[in-house]
């Protein structure tokens, strides 16, 4: 509890710091040294053309893709990803949302959430079920607890996957184009869940082309192309007054495509 006007040092320090991540597949260099740090409660939005490395970068952050080089610190602690147990512990603290949801097809909505509570967090079944139901409630799907993924719409699936990640109490969430696979009319329900997360102070790094959303809520927009960060800055600056020619070009294109409205 800080008194008004006083900001503690720990709050100024990044909760997650990623330094100089490089990744190559054969001859193709996908990430050419990307660094990013984020403070508690911030939302950083990654934009840029597909193939630019956004997705690989996000997957490198929780070592779903092992970077060739680069270091990561979570709350000041350097992560040694070669140490299995440390890696598993770290991943529990970094939630990930995928473009195509990746729910477990053989489990109902509520089971999708409780399975990791039971088998990763080693919670007992009863509290795990209660927590899973609470998370479903939070994304407005309490009534769909017993539905299987194949019985849910895309928007509902993505909300379940967000609930699943939230149940692990992550310190940071990575969202990889969470609305790109959705019908236009389903995007709103997912964005509104994400907005709630922002309002509740969740720390997030999100790749998205939802410009209206980013303009309104992002603390910083990061433009990535060709495995590099070309430019970064506050939304208004990047979207309407970018220094770099490529950034301006890209922003005007997606603004045209995805509209001003959110």
């Amino acid at each position: 509890m800080e008194s008004a006007g006083f900001v503690s040092i720990s709050e100024m320090e990044p909760i997650l710091r990623v330094e100089n991540v490089r990744k190559r597949y054969g001859k193709r260099e996908i990430l050419k040294g990307v660094s990013l740090s984020i403070r508690r409660g911030e939302l950083k939005v990654l934009i840029g053309p597909s193939g630019g490395g956004k997705s690989t970068f996000l997957q490198c952050i929780n070592y779903l893709v092992t970077p060739d080089e680069g270091d990561i610190w979570l709350e000041g602690r350097h992560i040694d990803h070669t140490h299995k147990r440390e890696l598993y512990r770290y991943r529990q603290q970094v939630g990930m949302i995928f473009q195509d949801f990746n729910l477990f097809d053989h489990l109902s909505a509520v089971q999708n959430i409780e399975v990791s509570l039971i088998h990763v967090k080693r919670m007992d079944r009863k509290p795990a079920r209660e927590r899973a139901m609470a998370e479903l409630e939070r994304v407005g799907l309490r009534g769909h607890a017993d539905h299987y993924p194949a019985q849910l719409s895309g928007g509902q699936k993505q909300r379940v996957s967000i609930a699943r990640a939230l149940a692990m109490d992550p310190k940071v969430m990575l969202l990889d184009e969470p609305t790109s696979a959705l019908d236009p009319e389903l995007i709103g329900e997912v964005l509104s869940v994400i907005k709630d997360l922002v309002a509740n102070g969740m720390t997030m790094i999100m790749a998205t082309h939802q410009i209206g959303f980013s303009r309104a809520l992002a603390d910083e927009i990061v433009f990535m192309e060709d495995g590099r960060i070309l430019e970064r800055g506050p939304p208004l600056k990047i979207l309407s007054d970018a220094k770099c020619e490529r950034t301006r070009e890209f922003c005007s294109k997606i603004t045209e495509l995805y509209g001003e409205a959110d």
């Binding site: 779903l64 512990r89 991943r91 939630g95 990930m96 990746n102 477990f104 990640a165």
Partner: peptide
């Protein structure tokens, strides 16, 4: 990927 990301 989802299972790994959850810490399985």
């Amino acid at each position: 990927l989802a299972a790994q990301a959850l810490g399985f």
